[in-house]
Simulated assay, not measured.
Amino acid sequence: MWHTYNCQYSMQYLCQEDRYYGNLSFYNITSTSMAFNWTPAPGPIDSYSVVVTSPAGSSQTITVGNVTETVVTGLSSSSVYTVQVFPSKCNIQLDPANGSACTAPPSPGWITVTNVGTNFVSLVWDAPSDMSSNSYSFLITYFSSYWGQSGSTNSSSFSATVMNLRAGSMYIFNVTTVNPTCGLSAPSSIAVYTNATTKILLLNVRMSSNRPCTKEMMRTLIGNRLNLLFADIYWTLGRMEQRCYGTPL
């Protein structure tokens, strides 16, 4: 049957329940929060309701309006959360987009150096918080910017000794918690110098200057140069024999 309408006036919108096949994408996951977005539902959407369910079965519902991303905070570490996003259209709740993600494990606590040699460093660290009921281990990575040396080792306890390092060099150590289900935590870090072996470097420096030749000037200029050459190596400037010849060049 045909109906004739006056097209000078707007007609009422016909609201229908569209099938929604949404996908969730998770990012910026920490030990207590996670961010995620989802594909938009078809048609004019009033709002989205986000339902986050913990492993214990408790849920929280967040209404986020007509946006397609949000951040959920106040979560427990090393836990798999189920997320459902329900679009609302004309007071009708459509089928949800479904997904799940695991929060990161907590970071190790304070790191302490217990022993240092010319080629090794021994570390201990405090246990991560909120990990009593979870399985975990630790990954220790290290790097020396001067030598370009890097490596890693694993530990099932709260300590580790890293071997085969270079003497008199600064190393950055990062300790991260590893959970077999939820991956890596944010690292805890410490910078440590290995002990130096005694090596004497004899320098014969000839310098030109318009200023009077003084031991203080020579020590400053040589020290500045050595800082550039040995930025990440422990060194000291020992006895310096000064010889000034005539008028400085």
Rank of each mutant, 00 (worst) to 15 (best):
D130K: 02
N6T: 11
W235I: 10
Q60S: 15
T114C: 01
N91K: 12
C7W: 08
T194H: 06
V192C: 08
C102F: 04
Y48R: 11
Y81F: 10
G151S: 08
S159D: 09
N164F: 12
A186I: 02
P44L: 10
S159R: 10
T68R: 06
S107V: 10
Y171I: 06
G43E: 08
S132E: 05
V51Q: 03
S54C: 05
N6Y: 13
L221A: 04
A196Q: 06
T214P: 01
N204P: 01
K215M: 13
L139Y: 04
S59M: 11
I172P: 04
S208L: 07
A167K: 01
E216D: 08
V124D: 05
S185F: 06
Y27H: 03
K215V: 05
I172W: 04
I62Q: 12
P180A: 05
A231S: 13
N134W: 12
Y142Q: 00
S59G: 08
S133G: 01
N174R: 05
C213M: 08
T39S: 11
S132V: 03
Y21H: 15
A160D: 03
V162C: 12
L94N: 09
W125H: 05
L203S: 12
P105Q: 04
V175A: 09
I233V: 15
N179W: 02
T118Q: 12
L202W: 10
Y245I: 01
V67Y: 07
L139V: 02
Y27I: 06
S33T: 03
G117E: 12
A104H: 10
V52M: 05
S144I: 04
A160S: 15
N227W: 13
I200H: 11
N98I: 06
G65P: 02
T82K: 13
S76V: 02
W235Y: 15
C7F: 04
V71K: 14
I172Y: 01
C102Y: 04
Y13E: 15
S31E: 00
S77D: 10
C244Y: 01
F173A: 06
D126L: 09
V50L: 02
S107L: 07
V116I: 14
N224V: 12
G151F: 03
